[in-house]
């Protein structure tokens, strides 16, 4: 049996990612409980859930390039969790909009918001893309869909683009943060272009094959110090 230390060593990234991804939710609940959500709690929840969703989606999209560039394969084990957390926050974001912001009054929502505003349309589209991705994230669906699973889940990039557009189009004046997100997303997309990918992996494979990293990574990391 693994000792606690061995377990930590094996799962540290998974633990860090889960703790980090749950932090915004815990903070939201805590601030709700202590009545510390500012003058406009609805706006506060909107901002925090939206921010969390976009960051986590970006992180999940970064996993593949991080692995192919740095050979840090463990990152792939948290890709799904990051994507699911992004979906969780996106769902809370939408629920907050429909429920707390609009009080579930669909007359108001459809009359004046979603169907006429481009930032609403792209935001909703991003969520509608994430929804099937979240549903098909299980091993069973992975098997069932076979090759199509990978194709389907490439849509995560589309969701990322739409989410950043959603943010960009709703901001009134100060585009700093939307543009930061757009730049990061642009870099991630660029790294996925097949030519770039091949170019980078050419640098990666050679040293990886000749040094210990390729072989060591298959073996469980060992504890060397006492």
């Amino acid at each position: 049996m693994d000792t606690l230390r061995q377990k930590l060593n094996k799962h540290w990234l998974w633990i860090v990612v889960n703790l980090a991804a749950l932090t915004p939710l815990v903070l939201l609940l805590w601030n709700f409980w202590t009545d510390n959500m500012g003058a406009d709690p609805v706006a506060y929840i909107t901002k925090k859930t939206g921010q969390s969703a976009i960051i986590l989606l970006g992180l999940s999209l970064a996993c593949t390039p991080i692995n192919s560039m740095f050979g840090f394969r463990r990152v792939l084990t948290v890709r799904k969790s990051l994507g699911l957390y992004a979906f969780l926050y996106a769902a809370l974001h939408l629920l907050n909009f429909v429920g707390l912001d609009y009080g579930f009054n669909f007359n108001y929502i459809f009359a004046d918001a979603v169907l006429t505003k481009r930032y609403m349309l792209v935001g909703l589209s991003a969520f509608l893309i994430l929804l099937p991705l979240a549903i098909t994230s299980t091993k069973g669906w992975m098997k069932r869909l076979g090759r199509d699973w990978k194709r389907l889940h490439k849509l995560a990039y589309a969701a990322g683009v739409l989410a950043v557009l959603h943010y960009l189009w709703l901001v009134k004046l100060d585009l700093t943060w939307p543009l930061i997100y757009a730049t990061i997303l642009g870099v991630l997309l660029f790294l996925r272009v097949s030519h770039v990918r091949k170019f980078i992996s050419r640098f990666q494979r050679k040293p990886a094959a000749s040094t210990k990293s390729a072989t060591v990574r298959k073996v469980r990391p060992m504890i060397t110090e006492g």
Partner: peptide, 19 residues
């Protein structure tokens, strides 16, 4: 009269729920 970004048909009072 609509604004390109926000519908002006409804509003939310700060501190309250619903429009």
């Amino acid at each position: 009269v609509d604004h390109p970004r926000w519908s002006q048909a409804t509003e939310r009072r700060v501190g309250a729920l619903g429009h």
